[in-house]
């Protein structure tokens, strides 16, 4: 049967696919080592004449990436922490507690899953402004957490729904409160799903361009993706810096993913599919 057959045919078929799918990365890496004039000559297959490692130093320096990196890390830590604190208990409630109106509250949460943030950004700006949260990392963090809550709750609810009811009931008979059940029984079980939630919220925060663009105005509170804006003016762009800056921005994510990919896959699939 197929599973015992040699893996050569599948391997041979996948190799060109791999090249095609990773091709854009190779092109980006190569372009990030070219001078502006070489990029302008625009032969996509030409190797850089002399690799311009200087581009990376310049992007770091000119874009002020050091400060941006620190802000991005604070932003990311805040979003991940708040997402866990809010979504895990809420997911548990929607999966295991039956109270009147539960369905309606859940639908209200699910609406958020379907609405792109671009559609509501102007009122969102007003709300943040009235709370004095514009131009602050606290403001962007709360907005991003809120934006991620629907998916977070959805993921955690799916996972907890797959945990047998009997576990909860047994603990209830032993006199445990729901908070205790969540802390002692459920969360230890949910490690893979929590890991997936961490990675998904971290990834979307790290890459978020739109909300920071609208909310973070002063350079001292801006995050990494906004650094790339500094390389462009109305009529001209420093592509060598945009490209090397892009590589700088996503290198940490790629390394983190490669290190944690096994747990991530596990958590994502258990979270999403066991529901």
């Amino acid at each position: 049967m197929s599973r015992r057959r040699s893996e050569l045919p599948a391997f041979a078929a996948l190799l060109p696919a791999l090249l095609l799918i990773l091709g854009p990365f190779l092109w980006l890496l190569m372009s990030s080592l070219k001078s502006e004039a070489e990029i302008g000559q625009a032969n996509p297959f030409a190797l850089p004449k002399a690799p311009m490692w200087q581009n990376y130093a310049d992007a770091w320096q000119i874009g002020g990436f050091g400060d941006l990196l620190v802000n991005s890390l604070f932003n990311l830590a805040g979003v991940v922490l708040l997402t866990l604190i809010t979504c895990a208990p809420a997911g548990y409630v929607f999966a295991k507690l039956k109270f009147p109106g539960r369905e309606w509250v859940f639908y209200l949460v699910i609406i958020g899953l379907t609405i792109p943030v671009q559609a509501i950004v102007i009122p969102l700006y007003q709300v943040l402004f009235n709370l004095g949260l514009i131009n602050s990392l606290a403001g962007i963090t709360l907005a991003q957490v809120s934006n991620g809550i629907p998916f977070g709750i959805f993921l955690m609810r799916s996972f907890f729904a797959g945990v047998p009811d009997e576990l909860v009931e047994a603990a209830r008979i032993d006199g445990a409160s729901h908070t205790q059940i969540l802390g002692r029984v459920m969360l230890p079980l949910a490690t893979p799903a929590l890991q997936a939630l961490v990675i998904i919220s971290a990834l979307s925060t790290w890459n978020d361009f739109f909300l920071p663009l609208v909310i973070l105005i002063s350079p001292e509170v801006q995050t990494l993706p906004l650094g790339l804006v500094r390389f462009a003016s109305t009529y001209s762009t420093d592509f060598r810096l945009v490209f090397s800056g892009t590589v700088i921005t996503f290198l940490p994510v790629i390394i983190l993913y490669i290190l944690t990919q096994r747990r991530f896959t596990e958590g994502l699939t258990q979270g999403a599919l066991k529901g």
Partner: peptide, 13 residues
């Protein structure tokens, strides 16, 4: 693209 407006609105502007 609204950047100047939001910069002025934010009091750190």
């Amino acid at each position: 693209n609204g950047a100047v407006q939001s910069a002025i609105q934010s009091n750190a502007g």
